[in-house]
Design a binder for these strands. Structure first.
Lengths: 161, 161
DNA sequence: GCGATTCTGACCTTTTCTGACCAAGTTCCG
DNA sequence: CGGAACTTGGTCAGAAAAGGTCAGAATCGC
């Protein structure tokens, strides 16, 4: 099994990821190093560093543009779905907070989004007396997680109410 | 990791804003310090200190001209504050949806954030029977708006629960 | 041979940055 | 006072510097 170009680039990036949690590079430079078309880099990123494989790829164009590949550790999408399914009817503020922190660390939501979710889940925000409050929190959390996990990030337009 | 000129200028200004609430400068001098065209300063102001990011930029031309950048809490926007104030204790799904759409159109939240808020506000997500549900929705909406509008978008770390 | 995978090239979008030209205050002189 | 000269910021088109996309050619494995 001779290493094809894509394999070589993949190995190079994964080796770099061993030492650090993420790699930052220039698409052009990497392409030059491997003597290939720049678009080949995109191909490797697509096929070997997909979201489902536990990687997050961020890019920026223009001057000082770059590509950053980050290894996402903890929960994979499938695991998260399981976690959501396992969420009981009632959820405490602490449980909800831990889960939100988790998906933030996994890179599935931005810091702002996580902060937004935290605000929703906070006990002062849910104007319902105990013990019903935990039940309401559970349904809210489930709704938010489904939104984030299902629609991934393709929300181009604001969906109707 | 790559810092372009705009990033450097942005960092410089934000660092200055850390200690004081606002920075006053001369466009020309700043441009000289960074060895760039003066219009580059306008570019940075446009792209990094926009209204939606929680900054207000005031300028004056002529002899004693200057540029002042002030960090501002977004609800200080009169019209928006009015809208939020008009929100009663109880908020219907339609009212909430309209407001979320508004702040999205104003560029204050991303499409994903808006979608997240919509999910929270949706009646199926709030497991409370009417007429209490509208009251709960009101408190949730207020909590989210405060989070997004007050803390602007500087949430670098996820705040604790 | 044939389908799947790999790879390239042509063309597109986004972001940054500059320079020429415009607009608004200030100062100063007659 | 009143206007010309100077000082300072604003705008905008466009060049330059990234990266993105996609159709299709080339190659691999069976």
């Amino acid at each position: 099994m001779p290493m094809c170009l894509a394999d070589a680039i993949e190995a190079f990036l994964k080796s770099a990821l061993e030492s650090q949690g993420s790699v930052v590079m220039r698409r052009r430079e990497l392409a030059e190093r491997f003597r290939c078309a720049p678009s080949q880099i995109n191909y490797v990123l697509m096929t070997r560093f997909a979201w489902g494989d536990g990687y997050v790829v961020e890019t920026r164009r223009g001057g000082a543009g770059f590509i950053r590949v980050t290894r996402v550790k903890l929960p994979q999408r499938a695991d998260l779905r399981e976690l959501v399914a396992e969420l009981g009817d009632a959820v405490t503020q602490e449980q909800a907070g831990a889960l939100i922190r988790l998906i933030w660390q996994a890179g599935l939501v931005t810091a702002r989004e996580a902060a937004l979710m935290m605000a929703v889940v906070r006990r002062e925000s849910i104007a319902v007396p105990l013990p019903d409050r935990d039940r309401v929190r559970g349904s809210l959390l489930r709704a938010m997680l489904l939104e984030v996990l299902d629609r991934g990030g393709e929300a181009v337009d604001v969906p109707g109410v």
